[in-house]
Amino acid sequence: MAANTSFDLEEITVRQANQALQEADAGSFTVANPKGVHALVCGLDAPLEVSIDGHVGYYCAGMNKQAEVNVDGNAGTGLAENMMSGKVHVTGNASQSAAATAHGGLLVIDGNASARCGISLKGADIVVKGNVGHMSAFMAQTGNLVVLGDAGDALGDSIYEVRLYVRGKVASLGADCIEKDMKQEHHDQLRALLDAAGCEGVETSEFKRYGSARKLYSFNVDNVDAY
């Protein structure tokens, strides 16, 4: 393991920082002075440890593979969008469409996530310690979304096989999303996700599970009022 390498975005460009990280095989890195720049540390594909000291803009850690990215601050739209594997952690809040279309890996948001968190999710896990905004998990396909706080309107609208675990209130459920039983396998899965996200002292019994009613899986004119 290489020693920690530091990049200061007051001295180098985003392109230079990204290129160095995309070419690295291993090691730990610190990025200083991000000041909300976009597309930071996207396209990584190695078991790196990257710490970002401050707020980031759009698409931070986009399409991440393998790397573990920690943002000490807030994140803009599309955090960890289309992540394939690895882990992304934000100490603050995340804007819209966090982990949009993400295929794998774990996204942990210590604060709140805005609208459309986990939209079109394709297999990744998301743990939000605060609240999530409206239309979260819209058209989400597979994977897990855990919300320790409340969920906004139209949670899980038109979802497929994603599992939604919410501890707080749900403002409303979207089309074809219903509450489902918490069986032992769900408690076990949720426990593992909470542990992976460092949620100590949180019991799985405090959560409700939501998922697809599977009534809109095939287009049927009898369901036309639901569309």
Binding site: T77, A100, S120, T142, F219
Partner: peptide, 17 residues
Amino acid sequence: NLPEGIDQRSACRHPDW
């Protein structure tokens, strides 16, 4: 990343912009 044999919707707008 979807179940076999069900209708698959393709979204009309991008999820993150």
